[in-house]
Design a protein around this nucleic acid. Structure first.
Length: 200
DNA sequence: CAAACGATTTTCT
DNA sequence: GAAAATCGTTTGG
């Protein structure tokens, strides 16, 4: 799996791109599932109006973002959806990367059961809320290290060509004014597990 | 202590 | 295409 050094790099935008094609593995409730990351968004700390940690905002919820890179930041959105982020950079620099979409690999039957569907469709793991539910991730996992046995990320040698990485604006952050225009969203060209949300 | 609000998804019209 | 679902966090009184 990816080592600690990977998560402590300074350039969160670069890490967000490097995560494409990596494998997210969860071992939750005794059930193992994995999927290839195909869509990410970078949240670049205190100067990023779209980030929960903008302007150094530090609360009980966002405290996890200030941890040293390599832990999970999971929070509840709209009272319904658990959104999974990867914290990066050194301690007290609140960078994070939202995982928005992934392509199912192992334990597809388990993921379908968690989502309550009987057929495999792209909506199984497209979109941050759906992905978290399929992988069994919830707010109990916030702060968990990504080097542990419950949640971790592997490099299985999948190489993504630079021309297959598409850049765009982030989704659902219109409130961030000019920072909403930053090209901090990355996804794989033509992958059907990329969320359908608007934001090109 | 009360009220508003999401880094969204699903369902209904 | 529009609106509901639903609750912890954050902010204001």
């Amino acid at each position: 799996m990816l080592n600690e050094q990977f998560y402590i790099q300074d350039n969160v935008v670069q890490i967000a791109q490097d995560l494409l094609g990596k494998i997210l593995v969860t071992n939750i409730d005794g059930q193992t599932t994995s999927s290839m990351i195909v869509e990410t968004e970078a949240y670049a700390g205190v100067n990023d109006k779209a980030s929960h940690a903008y302007n150094g905002r530090r609360t009980k919820r966002t405290e996890t973002m200030y941890a040293k890179g390599g832990v999970a930041y999971v929070y509840l959105c709209y009272g319904i959806h658990h959104l999974f982020n990867i914290v990066t950079n050194i301690a007290n620099v609140p960078h994070a990367i939202l995982i928005r979409g992934a392509e199912p690999i192992d334990g597809i039957d388990i993921m379908m059961k968690r989502r309550g569907v009987s057929t495999l469709k792209n909506t199984l793991t497209a979109g941050p809320g759906s992905l978290s539910k399929a992988m069994g991730i919830n707010t109990n996992h916030t702060g968990l290290p990504l080097y542990g046995s419950d949640i971790f990320i592997e490099d299985r040698g999948i190489v993504i060509r630079p021309e297959d990485i598409i850049k765009g604006t982030r989704v659902g952050v219109a409130y961030a004014k000019q920072d909403a225009l930053l090209p901090y969203r990355f996804w794989l060209n033509d992958n059907k597990y990329v969320s359908k949300a608007k934001g090109l």
